[in-house]
C-alpha cells in the first residue's frame, strides 16, 4: 500500500454501534500509523468514530460528507467518510 492510502471499511447501511465495531475489527491487526477510513450512512458514526479513536489512542484526521453514490445508494443517503490514524496502543 502506498503512503497516504487508507484501508477502507464499508459500513454503509449499518446502524450504531456496528460501524464502529467494523472499524475496530479492521484496525485490530494493523500497525500504528495506518490510516483507516470508514464509510457510514448512520449519523451516529460521525460522533462515535472520533470518540472511539480518543478512547483507543487513535487520531481522527479527516471527516467529510461524501456525495451520495447514485448507483449504490439511489442518491438518497448521506454518506460520511471518517479517517483515523491508528495509534501505538491499538
Amino acid at each position: 500500500m502506498s503512503a497516504g492510502d487508507a484501508v477502507v471499511v464499508d459500513a454503509r447501511g449499518l446502524r450504531c454501534p456496528l460501524p464502529v465495531i467494523r472499524l475496530a475489527a479492521a484496525s485490530r491487526d494493523l500497525p500504528a500509523g495506518t490510516l483507516v477510513t470508514v464509510l457510514s450512512t448512520d449519523p451516529a458514526a460521525r460522533h462515535d468514530v472520533p470518540a472511539w479513536a480518543r478512547m483507543r489512542g487513535h487520531a481522527t484526521v479527516a471527516e467529510a460528507e461524501v456525495t451520495p453514490d447514485e448507483e449504490a445508494d439511489g442518491g438518497t443517503r448521506c454518506v460520511w467518510s471518517l479517517t483515523v490514524r491508528l495509534g501505538a496502543d491499538s
Binding site: R15, C16, P17, V20, D42, P43, A44, R46, H47, D48, P50, A51, W52, R54, M55
Partner: peptide
C-alpha cells in the same frame, strides 16, 4: 436516527 445532540456536542460516545 439521530443520537442525543447533548452527547454529540460533548464529543462522547453516543451508542
Amino acid at each position: 436516527l439521530e443520537p442525543s445532540h447533548v452527547l454529540a456536542a460533548m464529543g462522547v460516545l453516543t451508542h
